[in-house]
Design a protein around this nucleic acid. Structure first.
Lengths: 123, 123
DNA sequence: TTTAGTGTATTAAGTTGCTTAATACACTTG
DNA sequence: CAAGTGTATTAAGCAACTTAATACACTAAA
């Protein structure tokens, strides 16, 4: 389900958040699906349950999960995270785009790169 | 010359690297200009010279500075960093662009945002 | 009602990275 | 020689991350 990269310098809980985000956004984990318990996922990843807990807290904070007392954590409905996710990514994208522009990449060249990114999956 | 943000969670030396990069890329520090000594800049920023040293090491690693033994550190000629900088930024940009695409932003909308980024300085 | 499984909270300990501090050294310039 | 460079080393303190061992309130099923 998830493979951790120990060469990655980021904290483990951040990696877990990122991987689970992708699984949710990509549809591998559907809304209202039950997430593995903090204990079982901790077991599976050879990581302390506290660390999983921290990742789940972050995911709930960002609207990807909701929790039912005594039952467990579940994938939140898409509307809970779709818009805020788009907004955050776009904000980061615009900052980075301006940096790329500052680095001397002309608009036409960047439009070409943009098209490449959207072209790829067309096969 | 530089103002540190103590609310920023990144290490100080990383902030310094980023600020100096911008000063160099933006032309405020011209090629072959002498950088402040690790001791004087440490004094100015109320930071240990070791921390400045670490930032300078990073900048030299990335091709922004060169060092002459006993004389000091200097801004590297533009060709030393121009291309690698562009390449690194573009690589990050493409990854982020694909994530934005995955988040459901249609190509046309993103092209519009791209144009906005390039439009702004036209006034 | 008991039992097992949830998320959550707390406390202590160990590790790692960042930062400071105090030196020391080889080098260049005046 | 003296002052100013980058560089290296060692020790110490601090904060964040992680593990570990518990404990608690809740829910579901036996």
């Amino acid at each position: 389900m998830i493979i951790l990269d120990y060469r990655d310098k980021r904290p483990i809980y951040e990696q877990i958040v990122e991987k689970l985000e992708h699984l949710i956004v990509g549809g591998a984990l559907e809304p209202d699906a039950k997430m593995p318990s903090v204990r079982s996922l901790g077991m599976e990843l050879s990581v302390n349950p506290n660390t999983i807990q921290r990742a789940y807290m972050q995911l709930e904070q960002d609207g990807y999960l909701y929790t039912v007392s005594g039952r467990g954590s579940f994938v939140a409905p898409e509307k809970e995270w779709r818009d805020s996710r788009k907004g955050k990514l776009l904000a980061r994208w615009e900052i980075l785009t301006r940096q790329v522009k500052e680095a001397g990449v002309p608009r036409e060249e960047l439009r070409q790169h943009l098209d490449n990114c959207y072209e790829e999956a067309k096969e």
